[in-house]
C-alpha cells in the first residue's frame, strides 16, 4: 500500500472526468482494492459525483471494494474449463482455503475468485494465482499449488 502512488495517480487525472475508469484501474493495480476514502478523493479531483465513482467501482468486476488477500486465487470457469471439470477444482480450492468464491480469509492470505475465460482453454481447467497460470489442474495438484504459497 503506497499513499504516494495513489496521490500520483489521482493528480495525473485531476480535472479529467472522462479518465475516471483509467484512474480507478491504476489505483486498483497499485493498491489491490479501492478504499472508500480514496474514492472520495478521486471524485473530488476528477470532478465526478461521488455516487458515479461508486457506480463505476461497483459495476466492474475488476474493482474490489474490500481489501484482498496477499494471494489472489482465480479459478477459471470459462466454458472449456467448465466442460473439463472446473467445478471439482473450485470445490477443492474452496475446501483447502475455507473460502467461497469472492471471499478473503481473516489472515488476508488468500482471496478466491471465479471468473470468465482467460483464453488458455487448451490447458483447462486452470488455476491462476497472482497472475501465474497453473494448467491442467486436478484437485490434488491444486492442493499442492495452494500449499506452496505462504
Amino acid at each position: 500500500m503506497c499513499e504516494k502512488d495513489i496521490d500520483g495517480i489521482i493528480e495525473k487525472y485531476r480535472g479529467q472526468p472522462s479518465s475516471l475508469i483509467h484512474a480507478l484501474v491504476e489505483i486498483q493495480h497499485a493498491n489491490h482494492w479501492l478504499p472508500r476514502e480514496v474514492m472520495h478523493r478521486v471524485a473530488e479531483a476528477l470532478e465526478v459525483p461521488f455516487a458515479q465513482v461508486m457506480q463505476i467501482a461497483s459495476f466492474y468486476k475488476t474493482f474490489s471494494l474490500t481489501p484482498k488477500g496477499r494471494h489472489e486465487v482465480h479459478v477459471c470457469t470459462g466454458m472449456t474449463c467448465h466442460l473439463r471439470g472446473a467445478a471439482k477444482l473450485l470445490a477443492k480450492v474452496e475446501e483447502v482455503t475455507g473460502l467461497k468464491a469472492g471471499e478473503t480469509d481473516a489472515e488476508s492470505k488468500f482471496t478466491v475468485e471465479t471468473g470468465a475465460c482467460l483464453g488458455s482453454c487448451s490447458i483447462g481447467p486452470e488455476l491462476i494465482v497472482d497472475g501465474k497460470h497453473y494448467g491442467r489442474m486436478t484437485p490434488e495438484k491444486a492442493e499442492a499449488v495452494l500449499n506452496s504459497y505462504e
Binding site: 479518465s19 475508469i21 480507478l24 459495476f59 466492474y60 475488476t62 474493482f63 470468465a116
Partner: peptide, 24 residues
Amino acid sequence: HFDVGIFVSGESSALMRSIEGNPP
C-alpha cells in the same frame, strides 16, 4: 483502451461508452 472485466463492454455501443469514460 482496456475493458474492466465485463462481457457487455464488448457490445459496440457499450464499448464506445466505455471509451468515453462512462459505464458501459
